[in-house]
Design a protein around this nucleic acid. Structure first.
Lengths: 205, 205
DNA sequence: CGGAATCCTCTTCGATACTG
DNA sequence: CAGTATCGAAGAGGATTCCG
């Protein structure tokens, strides 16, 4: 069965032919943070069903956006290829649109802290960072992840970095939205550095 | 019936809840060039079916991305709101991805020249334009449209502009891709100005 | 245990016919 | 011209089962 296509000779239509199906961009978002295993994705995308997840992963693999790796012990993990990573600007643009113009969050919605890592990256302003050079570690039940800023570029990931300049005992939401005194969340690093760090993002008013 | 949602508390998911359904982004693309009538969209999006087009337009209207205007004579037209226009960066990012990483164009695909206007805008490089100030008119069977560059910003539209600096008797594809001697397509304007114009875009190699 | 295949129900899509 | 109504086909969603 040939894949469904809009059959329009247009770059947008060809993009949407690949990433426009249900769940696809959300899978890309998860993989932009780190490689994932089948069960990670299944848990993140509540409601997808194993058959549909398997189908999407196969489509993305044959389209060359992800590759399936076999790790020690025979478990598989899925990681973005260069072509998949190249979707990041489009994903971040959609994140920014969602923050500024999208619908409001509904109370019962599922939430995963690592999604905020992507949202924060979308709000990063290179010109505000200047030559800022620092790494930040986030630590809570829902998230063990980091963000590094260097050369006007931001990088994110899961896990721990060795010598973080800031260690934050809280989520990104707690830090940027809910906290009046963000320095109280600091486990390591100075409040001044935290202030400088927070100044490089364009948070909505 | 409530609209289907991923129910994820994530800006990307909320964006995709609004614009992730089939045909939606392609409609936005068409409306980024100019307001359109029902029949225009129906013709552009081959295969959509009138019921689905009507449903999508209603969804987009109630999400606040487009508005339905009643023009003189009682005909309706659909135009993007500010919230809809704000999707342009995301659309252009997807266009760039499609050009660089998307699947190849298939021979039988439908093509519409005004789509190229959007693609060209996606390839515009503000820093290459500098203080360039000019308007370009495209004229062929399939397209009567224009592009203006001013202050490092590019604007596009359908129809005619009064005093174009360049008038090109051909499509964007003919000009940028298929022509060895692009100046032969000039109806008005100097070959030097055409060369300068073409230099502000990042065409793929 | 990780993931693929099966089955069944429900929703959405796509094409055509029809109506104000 | 701008939609609505209808209906068969395709896709999505959920549970369960199979397989290495």
């Amino acid at each position: 069965m040939a894949k469904r296509s809009y059959k329009q000779n247009c770059a947008l239509a060809r993009s949407v032919d690949v990433v426009g199906e249900r769940w696809t961009l959300l899978l890309i978002r998860d993989l932009l943070v780190a490689p994932r295993r089948f069960r990670d994705l299944l848990q993140s995308q509540k409601g997808i069903g194993t058959n549909l997840l398997a189908a999407r992963l196969k489509e993305l693999e044959s389209a060359g956006l992800i590759e399936r790796r076999t790790e020690d012990g025979g478990v598989h993990s899925y990681a973005l290829t260069q072509s998949g990573i190249a979707l990041e600007p489009a994903v971040l643009a959609l994140v920014r649109w969602g923050l500024a113009h999208g619908p409001k969050n509904q109370p019962g919605d599922h939430h995963q802290d690592d999604w905020d890592l992507v949202a924060l990256k979308a709000l990063f302003q290179s010109q505000r960072a200047g030559d800022l050079l620092l790494t930040v570690q986030f630590e809570t039940d829902g998230l063990t992840g980091w963000m590094a800023i260097a050369g006007g570029v931001v990088t994110i990931g899961l896990g721990r970095v060795p010598d973080a300049d800031l260690v934050i005992d809280g989520t990104i939401g707690e830090l940027f939205v809910a906290s009046e005194n963000p320095e109280t969340l600091l486990t390591a690093g100075s409040p001044e550095m935290l202030k400088r760090y927070m100044s490089v993002f364009a948070l909505r008013s």
